[in-house]
Design a binder for these strands. Structure first.
Length: 564
RNA sequence: GCCUUCGUAGUUCAAUGGAUAGAACAGGGCUCUUCUAAGGCCUUGAUGUAGGUUCGAUUCCUACCGAAGGCACCA
């Protein structure tokens, strides 16, 4: 019986036993014991309800256990410590899962989101601005969330939303026009943006000129402006595609602010009962809902990001059918999004419930916030370039056939793992030294472990060893690290499911390092290919580890080179 | 000022209200005639402060201290 079902059976029978004892507990959620030696699953319900039941916890635990049905796949049930009930799986149940890990290509997948279609919008770089490490963060988290959803049975629509109109474009274009640029490079465009921002804040004349230019861009009224605009837009977008290719993202939909703006405008203008006029602007007064007022249409009659976001929701809904649309952005937009969501409830009530916002922390320097307006950002490509350079020497000495490709795969692993190893909502303080590190708790560490498993599997194949769990090794004299692996690997589908349910890839990242660490410990301790009687069993276990690492890294969006 | 989020080893992060708070890096020591040393083994070291709820609090509540973000025409 698959382990997820064993788990459910335990949860159900515990709940029923409690009900029989007069306790309405609600659904039971099992945890894992602190120590692997204590068992595979545990519950503290006896502790929780002992007082209500008027018994001491251990006595009560005994009563609960006495009321349990026999559960296939459970070898023993212990009461331990202050009154925990611990369940230990049978060797057969564990071997059944290890066999699945070894042979099932989709090992780890589940049905949590089966039948659901979910649009995920992430990355959101803006043409005419740099692709900085904040975008790298959004892309990494967004991509791994989409893959978690896919492994949980959902159909996923990858979407990117890019701001190709708005003041930032006018600022960059103003300087480019002044420089008489033609077919500017990505660097020229982003430096123009920084200069434009500075001028906008510094002198009133430039500010006025940029505001007028902004209006022209929206209206598409000036052929010279249109020409340079088209060039700059195309150049930056093509540049972003190069980065997506390295990162391993392929979007299904691209939305642009130039398209969402008119849709949003018409929505706002057709709801005067929701939006009010104030100081020449059209605003949404959200104070009455415990939020704050935001401007939707400026005094110049131009739509702000707020209005475009309303248009975006409508456009998404018109473009594709989905149950939920999730927008992944940095936490600085948390409050902003609440206002938008509230406005949506009034103007597009049929779409509003489908729109969800997930925030991630911000990438910042120890000294403070990065700001592309000021130009003090670390760009995505400079970080990747530095990481590739750092990985290059080692890659050159590796067994890989394509060294340049390996260096890139390692660089992607290093940056992505650093982002994914911690809870998604927390800020990351960007430390260049740490970012370049490939040792210890890192992406390359897990990759290296995977490459090791591949090397062993390859050798075993050459030696005609037939991997098999048929012969169950005497479990008492196994090395601890091997026992740990055998208990940990079956948990993989649960870890994936929990990470998907909570939008928290870091549960998976943490788990993979745990597996890699146990494997490396075992590897250091025993000779796997030793021609002994356990050899086939050990090779089979290596295959189970290998698949778990491969699928796990893939879900995180991290490449899995077989040779390093 | 108001709102949101967050304070865990020297540093960067874990911990589903549970059992002895785990890792990694940095520091000290050991380990490649043996399947990849990007590895393994040993070692020092932590829950901001004060209360509260609970059988049990890093986790929930209150206050304070500290940090980050947001709060009208940026995205």
């Amino acid at each position: 019986m698959p382990i997820m079902e064993v788990r459910e059976c335990i949860e159900k029978t515990v709940e029923r036993s409690l009900t029989d004892l007069g306790i309405q507990s609600g659904p039971i959620v099992l945890e894992h014991p602190a120590e692997l030696t204590l068992g595979d699953y545990a519950t503290g319900v006896a502790l929780k309800y002992a007082k209500v039941a008027g018994k001491n916890p251990r006595e009560f635990a005994e009563a609960i256990v006495a009321g349990l049905d026999t559960i296939e796949g459970v070898a023993k049930i212990d009461i331990a410590g202050p009154g925990f009930i611990n369940f230990t799986l049978t060797p057969a149940a564990i071997i059944d899962r290890l066999e699945a890990a070894r042979t099932d290509e989709r090992w780890g997948s589940g049905t949590l989101l089966a039948g659901k279609t979910i649009m995920v919008e992430y990355t959101q770089p803006n043409p005419f601005k740099q692709f900085h490490i904040g975008h790298l963060m959004s892309n990494t988290i967004g991509e791994s969330i989409t893959r978690l959803f896919e492994f949980s049975g959902a159909t996923v629509l990858r979407a990117n939303y890019q701001g190709d109109v708005g003041p930032h474009v006018a600022k960059a274009l103003y300087i480019l026009l002044e420089r008489n640029s033609s077919n500017p490079s990505v660097e020229e465009i982003s430096s123009a943006y920084v200069e434009g921002s500075t001028r906008y804040d510094a002198d009133g004349q430039s500010k006025y000129a940029i505001d007028m230019l902004n209006k022209k861009i929206y209206e598409r009224s000036d052929p010279v402006v249109n020409e340079l605009y088209a060039q700059g837009r195309a150049i930056t977008l093509a540049h972003f595609e190069d980065i997506y290719a390295i990162l391993g993202t392929k979007f299904d939909f691209y939305f642009f602010e130039s398209d969402t703006a008119p849709i949003g405008l018409s929505i706002v203008q057709s709801h005067p009962e929701v939006f009010t006029q104030s100081e020449g602007a059209t605003v949404f007064e959200a104070e009455k809902y415990g939020l704050h007022t935001r401007v939707f249409i400026t005094g110049l009659g131009l739509p702000t990001y707020e209005t475009k976001d309303l248009g975006l929701a409508k456009l998404k809904s018109d473009t594709a059918t989905f149950d939920t649309s999730i927008t992944v952005t940095a936490s600085e937009q948390t409050e902003y999004f609440k206002v938008i969501k509230k406005a949506m409830e009034f103007v597009i009530p049929e779409i509003a419930p489908k729109i969800e916002h997930v925030t991630h922390g911000m990438m910042r320097f120890a000294e403070g916030k990065m700001s592309s307006r000021k130009g003090n950002v670390v760009t995505g490509e400079s970080l990747l370039t530095d990481l590739i350079a750092a990985a290059k020497d080692r890659a050159a000495e590796s067994r890989a056939i394509d060294h340049a490709r390996l260096a890139q795969e390692i660089a992607v692993a290093a940056i992505k793992y650093q982002i994914l190893k911690q809870a998604a909502g927390k800020d990351i303080v960007f430390d260049p030294t740490r970012a370049l590190s490939m040792e210890g708790d890192s992406g390359p560490y897990v990759q290296y472990t995977f490459a090791r498993t591949c090397a062993i599997i390859e050798r075993a194949r050459t030696a005609n060893i037939n991997p098999s769990f048929d012969m169950v090794a005497n479990s008492t004299d196994l090395p601890i690290a091997q026992k740990v692996l055998m208990r940990l690997i079956p948990r993989f589908p649960e870890v994936v499911a929990r990470a998907a349910a909570d939008y928290e890839p870091h549960y998976l990242a943490t788990y993979l390092v745990e597996i890699a660490s146990a494997f490396n410990s075992w590897y250091g301790q025993v000779q796997i290919l030793d021609q002994g009687k356990d050899e086939r069993f050990k090779v089979a276990l290596v295959e189970a580890v290998s698949r778990t690492l491969k699928n796990g890294l893939t879900i995180l969006g991290i490449p899995t080179p077989e040779r390093m």
